[in-house]
Write a protein that binds this DNA or RNA. Structure first.
Lengths: 140, 140
DNA sequence: TCTTGCTTTGAAGTGCGCTTCATAGTTTAT
DNA sequence: ATAAACTATGAAGCGCACTTCAAAGCAAGA
């Protein structure tokens, strides 16, 4: 069993965030001591890490809550949950596509700067000249 | 030259967002007609698409503004810009790592559901039983 | 001409995901 | 015993990225 602070340290979240997640029902109700202090179990910690993972995937709080609600409603909701998980996966793929595009453009831009830095003569381009030069390179 | 509405249609943004980006100086000042209506040029459209791409990479408005400010200050800022672009790339890689992790977990979860659906006997698991089953699978 | 639709502006509003605050009780070390 | 550190709660606040609103002007077709 771990205190609020320990749980926070183990997950890299703050105690405030943990309370917030609990209030938003992303976590099961956390056990308490006699004096109402929270006691996080190993299972709780695992659960928190799952939520964290979903948040890293930019799954909104609301969706996570829905998913967990289904989870607590037992086996009859499996096919719904499978559908949600499939939607997460589709969304993840589209996010990754976006990042790939951004990464490609950004890497091209970096290569362009490397090249410019080799030629001090080009360092007085205006931003529009530079932009046009960059664009025309990309199109070739 | 394109009207506000046309520019919005071409980029998939709203006219309000385009005005917002301009106000935040993510775009160069857009040309106007006699009656102060905006006229977006092809270069403006390209520029908007670049901003859009950076936003897709979750680059904050503030960073984009900084970058563009450097851009307008000419060639002496090239090395600073190269550094910023490198930071974008590093951040993109870490975002993609997060997505990869989330994707792996999510796919595992999906496979788990597929399997469960094959065995109707397991459909009455409580959520904790299911969770433990899932966890123990992952560890093997 | 009149109506419908597009455009302008600044200001205020929205939704999300936390974070901070104020106040109060508990535990631990000295 | 007392100070320092940890915990609790509800409510308010914050930063971001837009979005919507209100009030007004311009434009193009029936």
């Amino acid at each position: 069993m771990y205190s609020a602070k320990e749980a926070a340290e183990m997950t890299g979240l703050t105690t405030a965030t943990l309370r917030y997640y609990e209030k938003e029902r992303l976590l099961p109700p956390i056990g308490r001591t006699e004096q109402r202090y929270r006691q996080y179990s190993d299972t709780d910690i695992e659960w928190i890490k799952m939520v964290q993972c979903l948040r890293m995937a930019n799954v909104p709080i609301r969706s996570i809550r829905e998913y967990i609600l289904l989870l607590t409603q037992g086996g009859r909701t499996i096919s719904q949950r499978r559908l949600m998980v499939q939607e997460y996966i589709d969304d993840l793929h589209s996010q990754m596509d976006n990042l790939q595009n951004a990464l490609a453009l950004t890497k091209k831009k970096l290569a362009f700067y490397e090249e410019l830095l080799q030629k001090p003569a080009t360092q007085d381009l205006t931003y529009l000249e530079e932009w046009n030069l960059f664009k025309s390179k990309g199109e070739s």
